[in-house]
Amino acid sequence: MAPLSSYFAFPEWLNMLTAFLIGIGFGFALEQAGFSSSRKLAGMFYGYDTTVIKVFFTAAIVALIGSQFLSYFGLLNLNQVYVNEFYVTASIVGGVIMGAGFIMGGFCPGTGLCAMSIGKIDAMAFVAGGFAGAFLFTETYPLIEGMANARYKGPVKINESLGLSPGLFTLILVAAAVAMFWIAELAEKKFARPEITNDLK
């Protein structure tokens, strides 16, 4: 609860408990939305089911709008919110590897754990593969260190590098997201495969 803790002093156990409860909620929402089915995830790639992009983009814009309002009302200190650091080369290479793993394995890291919890054997293999990858990365890190740290830009925000005000950027992003949802639903109709959700019933 880092952003809130500048206003109230929380004991450590409460921080841990909050993290635990948020984690449970996240896992529950993923499972509930059918994200533990790799068909659903792969559907994004083939265009017959675009739930993934809709869910993640909705989450992003709701969080964006919510955090900006909370900050405006003095309930959230945005300086205490972690901003991901931007390594240009590493982002591109990592993005390609992650995307390939995503479509081959049929899960992303979070949903992989989710599917593993409900006993899917392919997900267990997927998570084991993830750990193997992490192990390999750590062991070979000295070899790829140069590439991993190349073209470091620091914790940049998109609106700052575009020179837009935070609120205006939010409006543009939300408009773009809504347009994208509309296109995604058109794609779903075009590439429809009516039988894919049968196993969810």
């Binding site: 709008i65 900006q68 405006y72």
Partner: peptide
Amino acid sequence: LLLLLSLILALLPLTANRSFT
């Protein structure tokens, strides 16, 4: 709803600065 709310945000002078609580 999201579009309308972000329209409000676009009109606000948002910064990362804090305010007196």
